[in-house]
Simulated assay, not measured.
Amino acid sequence: MTSQVTVPLNPNQQAALIDFVYNLGAGNFRASTLLRLLNAGDFARAVRQFTLWDHADGRVLPGLLRRREAEAALFAAPI
């Protein structure tokens, strides 16, 4: 994961991304808009990408949505 991210991250951002990538898969992360926005320095738009990854088999899973919301909150939390 860290080899794909080209911008500095604080510990909260790094922890959120590690959790996200572990659950999502490195290949999906490499191709994601979240990574593209993050590397462009657009952290505000990147954090909103977390909750878009809340589907499985074409439907929203409440537990997955809660996980993504927690990851986004951690990513946005000050140190």
Rank of each mutant, 00 (worst) to 15 (best):
T2H: 13
S3I: 15
Q4D: 13
Q4L: 15
V5W: 03
P8C: 10
N10A: 03
P11S: 09
P11C: 04
Q14A: 12
Q14H: 13
Q14S: 13
A15K: 10
A15H: 09
A15E: 04
I18S: 04
F20L: 07
V21H: 00
Y22E: 03
Y22N: 12
Y22P: 00
Y22T: 15
N23C: 01
L24Y: 03
G25M: 10
G27C: 06
G27M: 07
N28I: 12
N28M: 10
N28P: 03
N28K: 13
R30D: 01
R30E: 10
R30G: 02
A31Q: 11
S32L: 14
S32E: 03
L34C: 06
L38A: 09
N39C: 14
A40N: 13
D42R: 09
F43R: 13
R45W: 05
R45Y: 10
A46I: 11
R48N: 12
Q49W: 04
Q49R: 10
L52T: 15
D54W: 07
D54S: 15
A56N: 00
A56T: 12
A56C: 11
G58M: 12
R59M: 08
V60D: 01
L64C: 10
L65A: 07
R67F: 02
R68F: 04
A72I: 07
A77S: 11
